[in-house]
Amino acid sequence: MKRDFLNISDLKKDEILQIIDYAIKLKKGNVQDQSLKGKSIGLIFMKPSTRTRLSFEVGVYQMGGQPIYIQGSSTQMSRGEEIKDTGRVMARYLDGIVIRTYSHKEVEDLSRYFDKPVINALTDYLHPCQILADLQTIYERFGKVENIKVAFVGDGNNVANTWLIAGGLIGFNVSVATPEGFEPSGKAVHEALKLAQETGASIEVTNDPVEAVKDADVVYTDVWVSMGQENEKEKKELFKEFTVNRHLLSHASKNAIVMHCLPAHKGEEISEEIFEEFADVIFDEAENRLHAQKALMSLLFK
């Protein structure tokens, strides 16, 4: 039976911990995984990408497979072909699809008509592959991913949505701070709270960044203006108090780390001083996209 990865909650907690453990072994070179030998994986990109494209192309190649980069504008989808027809055609050629696009529904529709694994490499709603790599990074720093507090400060975007769901699923506390009117998706909050009933996680959304980062082990941020929202630059004025800087970080745990999924707009969501202080963490986080995604693909293609 095929398995997709459209949402972080498509995995069980134990599977996420398994992925983290295996990703660390892959990173250290302790294992060589050829799960994709002889397989062709389509990489459909409707949005520009650096880390996601590189990590998946290199990862598929290292696992013995053939990555096929497909720019969305070069396909018949750009001329109106229905996603269900595209999925049924690609199922005749490919062994899996990684898709980075705008609409989450588009990914869900594709998964219904493509009878092999589909991996969500980013939608406007969720960014689950990023959070897998982030969890690996946290484990490397703290030796655990449970019983910690993650504070997300900035726009209530796809990354914030995924952090909330991950916290509820695994059992760590998540506090998201955004300006009023920019809170995370109500759907994501609802799912996180439902999951948290089982794990005991604390799920919080606030408009006060100081409240959010209080005693946090991880302070996390992302750009204020996401791809496709460039016409909303005026909203930056509303985010002035949400910069991760020395003052804000002083309210976090003494041993807190700062994370950023990149690209960073230094001087906006994060000060250059704090970015450089935690650059080792941030670029480990970027590298871990490769290892976590390889571990994910190994699980899905068993």
Score class of each variant (00 low, 15 high):
188 A>T: 01
185 S>W: 01
236 K>Q: 05
245 N>S: 05
170 I>T: 01
208 D>G: 12
182 F>Q: 07
182 F>I: 03
186 G>K: 15
225 V>W: 11
251 H>T: 13
233 K>C: 05
221 T>I: 08
204 E>M: 12
217 D>Q: 00
186 G>H: 06
274 I>V: 15
201 A>Q: 01
253 S>M: 06
241 E>A: 08
220 Y>T: 14
212 A>E: 14
190 H>C: 09
204 E>C: 09
219 V>T: 15
236 K>H: 10
230 E>A: 06
201 A>C: 00
186 G>W: 04
205 V>L: 07
248 L>A: 14
185 S>L: 07
242 F>L: 05
162 T>V: 04
198 E>P: 12
222 D>N: 11
227 M>G: 07
191 E>G: 02
243 T>R: 09
245 N>Y: 08
227 M>Y: 06
232 E>W: 12
241 E>D: 14
174 V>D: 10
252 A>G: 13
252 A>V: 06
213 V>A: 02
173 N>V: 07
179 P>I: 01
243 T>Y: 09
162 T>E: 07
236 K>F: 08
240 K>R: 08
215 D>G: 04
260 H>S: 12
258 V>R: 01
218 V>N: 13
235 K>A: 15
175 S>T: 14
214 K>T: 09
261 C>W: 00
236 K>N: 10
238 L>S: 14
261 C>T: 03
163 W>M: 00
241 E>R: 12
266 K>V: 14
227 M>A: 06
247 H>P: 08
198 E>C: 04
213 V>W: 00
211 E>F: 09
244 V>P: 08
239 F>C: 14
194 K>L: 06
208 D>C: 02
175 S>W: 14
171 G>P: 03
216 A>S: 05
173 N>R: 13
212 A>P: 15
233 K>H: 14
215 D>V: 07
188 A>M: 03
265 H>M: 03
191 E>R: 13
215 D>L: 06
181 G>E: 02
246 R>Q: 09
225 V>R: 08
169 L>F: 01
227 M>D: 15
213 V>K: 06
167 G>L: 00
235 K>Q: 13
226 S>I: 02
182 F>E: 02
249 L>E: 03
251 H>Q: 13
251 H>F: 13
257 I>N: 13
252 A>Q: 12
258 V>F: 11
238 L>T: 15
217 D>I: 00
263 P>E: 10
196 A>T: 01
206 T>W: 09
268 E>I: 00
177 A>E: 13
254 K>A: 11
274 I>C: 08
176 V>K: 06
238 L>E: 12
228 G>F: 07
232 E>I: 04
167 G>I: 02
164 L>R: 11
242 F>K: 04
216 A>M: 12
166 A>G: 04
162 T>H: 06
200 G>H: 09
